[in-house]
Design a protein around this nucleic acid. Structure first.
Length: 504
RNA sequence: GGCUGGGUAGCUCAGCUGGUUAGAGCGCACGACUCAUAAUCGUGAGGUCGGGGGUUCGAGUCCCCCCCCAGCUACCA
């Protein structure tokens, strides 16, 4: 029992919600649900990042205010959460007044602590974009990658964050806490970046107005990522009306991000927190990318996977299961509709769905739905399982954790073949034996359902309801005689006779 | 270029500090069974463990060289 504060990145409202957003959110949600099972005091945060130039530019192009555009787009992300069955506790928007005030407060402290100074940023500037371009994105001949016009070297006065002051402390952080960033190779990546020598970074922009204004210099707004990163901290102060949750949950136990924002979270973020005298997150986990174009994006090859299409047709649980199962969490991997359909049918429908189906059917058929209150078998297969799963999830190894449970699904299907309950049912003298087999089967299914409930919240709820044992508390994830006394009929959890996909 | 990962059965991948005939899932072939969503279970097919060299009684598992893939190498949100 403890507290568990988990976060996703805040999603940038300028893009439409896509698989990547769904993926991160699902992973964090599985962790949040798992910890609730364990009785932890959980807070799960997600939200949107609304400031910055792309939004300002897009709004201008549409002839609306940035706020109006942000309002509209933020809603799409907010709507994604119930859609994914993400059990979030709060949805932060960086345009929230409370967030902005808190950012100003924290940054004020950073300045008081002496980590802010006035300097000037110099770089290649595109007048059409009204933005500086990084070295990497400049085209040959110093041209803008978007407008292909020549860039000019310009200088802008702005405030700087003394990142270089944290060089040693960050190196020490990685030395002292090798597991604070996972997987390991991501920590290496961050560390090598740090060891390459940290330079100060600009903290404000004068040319922009769409952002959080710098309290000590109203002509500037904070550069987006300061504003964005601090959401993890600011949210706690106002997520619950009338109560500041900061002391209760800070720092985060687990932050989940995609590899594209590693540097911000593994380097700038801890430095910023140090500068503000705030405790650092316990653990940051970087997942990989779900790739759909490993063999070129091609609809005819069936390798384009759209999360909404999947959810519409197969249900949210099927998507949740697939993305965590088919690609090892933490690595890059390919996903496709073909692979999805294979897993749906083989694992969800034929594996777990059919196991539940046959188990319940036999109890109803042979025992009128009454589960014999006898000691179940298969102890050797289930003892210690819950602890192993928990240990893996604590290390963000979601894919292996799920695999452990799936081994038991296969074990139970094998158990049915080994014990041939249909044969026992024909023999009066085997009644006791059949009792044991049925009790074991139902109990095994129940334990599997409890362990899978974070991944498959909807279907396991239905299944556990049919078993009359809805409690998913983690200590229930162990074989217990008499945990289920009666079973009800259950419609297929993962039906196969689904309507054909609506072709777009 | 440098750094970090990775290249193992058709596919997706396990293989910790080196040790009997290299494993799993899916797919495929054959067989068994019938409780179940025509589901399930068993058996099998034999992959030079990227290539070469080396250390060792013995190497996917350590060392060296090479090839290929991905990521990172600072201000994209």
């Amino acid at each position: 029992m403890g507290t568990f504060y988990v976060t996703t990145p805040i999603y940038y409202v300028n893009a439409a919600p896509h698989m990547g957003h769904a993926y991160t959110t699902i992973a964090a949600d599985v962790m949040a649900r798992h910890h609730r099972q364990r009785g932890d005091d959980v807070f799960f945060l997600t939200g949107v990042d609304e400031h910055g130039e792309p939004v300002a530019n897009a709004a201008e192009a549409l002839g609306v205010t940035p706020q109006a555009l942000a309002d509209q787009n933020a809603e799409r992300f907010r709507a994604l959460m119930p859609r994914l069955n993400a059990s979030i506790d709060f949805f932060i928007r960086t345009t929230d007044a409370e967030h902005k005030a808190k950012v100003q407060e924290v940054m004020g402290r950073v300045k008081e602590n002496g980590f802010v100074y006035k300097g000037h940023y110099e770089g290649w500037y595109c007048p059409r974009c009204a933005d500086f371009k990084s070295e990497a994105e400049i085209e040959d001949g110093n041209r803008c990658p978007i407008h292909h016009i020549e860039l000019t070297m310009e200088k802008e006065e702005n405030w700087f964050f003394r990142l270089s002051a944290f060089q040693e402390r960050l190196e020490q952080l990685y030395a002292d806490r090798p597991d604070w960033v996972g997987p390991r190779h991501r920590a290496n990546e961050a560390l090598s970046f740090i060891k390459g020598g940290l330079q100060d970074v600009s903290l404000s922009r004068a040319k922009l107005t769409w952002g959080v204004s710098v309290p000590w210099d109203e002509e500037h707004v904070f550069y987006v990522w300061f504003d964005a990163l601090l959401n993890y901290y600011t949210a706690l102060s106002y997520a619950k009306p009338g109560e500041d949750l900061t002391d209760r949950f800070w720092p985060p136990a687990q932050q989940v991000i995609g590899k594209d924002i590693l540097k911000f979270h593994a380097v700038f973020w801890p430095a910023l927190l140090m500068a503000a005298d705030l405790p650092l997150p316990q653990r940051l986990y970087i997942h990989g990318y779900l790739m759909m174009d490993g063999d070129k994006m091609s609809k005819s090859l069936g390798n384009v996977l759209d999360p909404f299409t999947i959810m519409d047709r197969f249900g949210t649980d099927a998507l949740r299961h697939y993305v965590l199962r088919d690609v090892t969490f933490g690595q890059d991997g390919n996903v496709s509709t073909v692979a999805f359909e294979g897993r749906y049918e083989a694992e969800l429908a034929n594996g777990l769905g059919n196991l539940a189906s046959r188990s319940i059917a036999m109890v109803r058929k042979y025992r009128d739905g009454v589960v014999p209150a006898v000691e179940p078998e298969l102890r050797e297969d289930f003892d210690g399982l819950a602890d192993e799963v928990a240990a893996l999830i604590d290390r963000a190894e979601l894919t292996p954790a799920i695999e452990l449970v799936w081994e038991r699904v296969r074990r139970l299907n094998r158990y049915v073949e080994e014990t041939t309950p249909w044969a026992l049912a024909k023999d009066e003298g085997s009644a006791d034996r059949l009792d044991v087999v049925l009790a074991t089967l139902v109990e095994g299914v129940r334990v599997v359902a409890v362990l899978l409930s974070p991944v498959l919240p909807e279907t396991t709820e239905k299944l556990l309801a049919a078993l009359g044992a809805p409690d998913v508390a983690y200590e229930r994830a162990t074989l217990t005689a008499g945990a289920v006394s009666h079973v009800d009929a259950l419609a297929p959890l993962f039906p196969k006779d689904l309507p054909a996909a609506a072709t777009a």
